[in-house]
């Protein structure tokens, strides 16, 4: 009887031990991330700044991401018009397609898809670059040369991504709406001027601006997750590989979570 009681107590104790350990690990990681965010923000707003590094990141994150964001937006707009037509034709509501395309693209699809594409392209690249620098002691070398790694590596990337994502999304909005227009006019036989006037009548400034705010938040998330995982990369090729994967996965998840929160804030 005593043995049975001891066994039950041990099992319960182990369960509590596992839960407690899990909670401690969770709070430790959360605390480390919050501390990293606070340091990154502090160094974004305090001199010295490194303009050449910032310019390099603006070009890398903004200009070189244009093709992938543009292609994503174009085909998203085209598919959206096609799918909307298939559904709306059943209810003789084809005229709503222009509105569905422009609202879906500006409010949700362009910022979210651009964020996810940039997370794959830039988040991974930032994590791999900074992770390799960590593993090869280049970050320690920066410190010994009187250069703060947060100012030289982290701040320019965070600032550049936060500034360039809205720019990319704005272009994505235009290309996405254009994709829907092309399919509607040349494939589905809509009238060009009425499609454009419906688009113009439905879209409001807030639809576009909310998407740009979202984009800035997603840019911040992507750069921060890339920097965080790269900066805390484990040793060797495996450590850098894991940092890269973690950067893309965590930034994608945070983008989806913050997209819901921001949508709730803007439109509820």
């Amino acid at each position: 009887m005593n043995e049975q009681t001891n066994s039950i107590l041990n099992t319960r104790f182990n369960v509590f031990l596992a839960i407690g350990h899990g909670l401690l690990v969770f709070f430790e990681r959360t605390g480390r991330l919050v501390k990293f965010i606070a340091r990154a923000l502090y160094h974004c707003f305090t001199p010295p700044w490194f303009p050449s590094q910032l310019l390099r990141q603006l070009i890398d994150i903004g200009y070189y991401s244009l093709p992938v964001v543009g292609m994503t937006a174009l085909f998203t707009g085209m598919v959206l018009a096609l799918q909307s037509y298939t559904g709306f034709a059943r209810f003789n509501a084809e005229s709503a397609i222009a509105g569905v395309v422009v609202l879906s693209v500006t409010r949700e699809l362009s910022p979210v898809l651009a964020g996810l594409m940039v997370a794959g392209r830039i988040g991974a690249s930032i994590a791999a670059e900074i992770g390799t620098m960590r593993v090869t002691e280049q970050i320690d070398a920066l410190t010994t040369l009187s250069v703060n790694p947060f100012k030289y590596l982290i701040a320019p990337r965070v600032i550049a991504a936060t500034l360039m994502l809205p720019f990319l999304v704005l272009i994505g909005d235009i290309i996405g709406v254009f994709g829907g227009y092309v399919v509607s006019i040349y494939n589905l036989g809509f009238n060009s001027s009425s499609y454009l006037s419906q688009t113009w009548d439905i879209v409001e400034t807030m639809d576009v601006v909310s998407g740009l705010y979202k984009a800035a938040a997603f840019g911040f998330i992507v750069a921060l997750m890339g920097c965080y995982h790269g900066f805390n990369s484990g040793r060797g090729a495996q450590g850098v590989g894991a940092a890269t994967t973690n950067a893309v996965v965590s930034s994608s998840i945070f983008i989806l979570i913050f997209n819901y929160i921001l949508t709730q804030v803007f439109f509820s």
């Binding site: 090869t136 002691e137 280049q138 320690d140 070398a141 410190t143 010994t144 040369l145 009187s146 703060n148």
Partner: peptide
């Protein structure tokens, strides 16, 4: 940062950028 100006360091792997 001020103190680091007194230091120089040769890393094992070079740690060149």
């Amino acid at each position: 940062d001020e103190m680091m100006r007194k230091f120089g360091m040769l890393f094992q792997g070079g740690a060149l950028f």
